[in-house]
Design a protein around this nucleic acid. Structure first.
Length: 338
DNA sequence: TTCATTTGACCCGG
DNA sequence: CCGGGTCAAATGAA
């Protein structure tokens, strides 16, 4: 708490975060991304077996790259805590009245454009029957939205304060099924690590699955809805997907889900749909990009909240809206070819 | 006490 | 100006 509420500022040095540093980081990361891509092209992996076969030498390189990516993301995230130049949300003068005390407007103190930065690069929209995606979220707001009768809840990563993780999500009860279905939009990437569950070394993505080693995605029949010409725009894909992710919570997963995980490792890519990303890519991608367990402390989800009751089942399907503006965070290569 | 949620105010972008 | 996203004081729970 020390940081968010009271006004504990981040280190002054961080506030000075020279843009040059950020630019350099971006450059480095782009380079690493390119290398990663080259690696993938070099070893097309239509099947897991092939992936495993091709593994040998390259896996180590991939690991290294992944590590680099991860570190870079963290570093950048730390620097870019407000989406540009400033340091963390160091707003010292925001005394607002509550109840009756007046004041309020005494010192408008226009905050440097800090709010509502254009949304973070990654946007995943998921329809789920539970709010529990394994990550720990902290609710910071709720609003009624024009279009929908259901309020929208805003969550950010619990580790935002201590680790600078900037992942956020928005949760809204589905119109069709308000009581049991939620539309969850994920923004940004998790840069947080839970020390209790995250191994120090990123496991080999090609190795035969220690259950806690990779992000696993299975596609059980997929329908690409909007496979238009434009690669970017409204590519609304509807992909019934079971998505599991991240190191180490097999323990927190139901056994059935584990079985699915194993299955996912065996079957990747539905007939008729070609994934441009290989299994290795998905498996080794920094798991922060996906909703998925970081921790076993299921602190997320307002279990007792009237607006969004929790429910036992797991993720439903995912309607992916491809990650928004590329450039900055396009290291995650993932898509479908019609 | 600490930490999470609630909720109205504030602020930005369209 | 309006709608939506975020902040932070107040409040509640553990």
């Amino acid at each position: 708490m020390a940081s968010s509420a009271g006004g504990g500022l981040r280190s002054p040095a961080a506030t000075a975060a020279p843009r040059v540093v950020m630019d350099s980081l971006i450059e480095v990361r782009e380079g690493a991304t390119r290398l990663q891509t080259m690696l993938l092209e070099e070893s097309p992996t239509p099947s897991i077996a092939a992936a495993a076969a091709a593994a040998g030498a390259t896996s180590e390189v991939r690991q290294t790259l992944d590590g680099m990516m991860s570190s870079l993301s963290s570093a950048m995230s730390a620097l870019d805590t407000t989406g540009g130049g400033g340091g963390g949300q160091g707003q010292q003068g925001r005394r607002r009245k509550r109840g009756g005390a007046a004041a309020a407007r005494s010192g408008p103190l226009r905050r440097s454009s800090n709010r509502r930065r254009s949304h973070s690069p990654f946007v995943n929209t998921v329809t789920a029957s539970t709010l529990d995606d394994g990550n720990s979220w902290r609710k910071y707001g709720q609003k009624r939205i024009q279009e929908s009768p259901n309020p929208r809840s805003y969550y950010r990563c619990t580790h935002r304060a201590d680790q600078g993780c900037r992942a956020t999500r928005q949760v809204q009860a589905s119109d069709a099924n308000p009581s049991s279905e939620f539309i969850i939009s994920y923004f940004g990437q998790h840069t947080c690590r839970d020390p209790s569950t995250i191994p120090l070394v990123i496991p080999d993505d090609t190795a035969p699955p220690p259950p806690d080693c990779a992000n696993l995605i299975s596609f059980g029949g997929s329908t690409v809805v909007g496979g238009g010409a434009s690669p970017s725009a409204n590519t609304t894909t509807t992909v019934p997907t079971t998505m599991l992710s991240r190191f180490g919570y097999s323990s927190s997963l139901p056994t059935q889900t584990q079985a699915q995980a194993q299955l996912a490792a065996a079957v990747v890519g539905p007939p008729g749909t070609t994934m441009t990303a290989s299994w290795a890519t998905v498996g080794s991608a920094p798991a922060e990009y996906w909703p998925g367990g970081t921790t076993s402390d299921m602190a997320c989800g307002p279990a007792g909240t009237a607006s969004f009751p929790s429910s036992p089942s797991s993720l439903g399907f995912m309607t992916g809206s491809p990650f928004g503006n590329a450039g900055d965070d396009d290291l995650f290569l993932f898509g479908f070819d019609p």
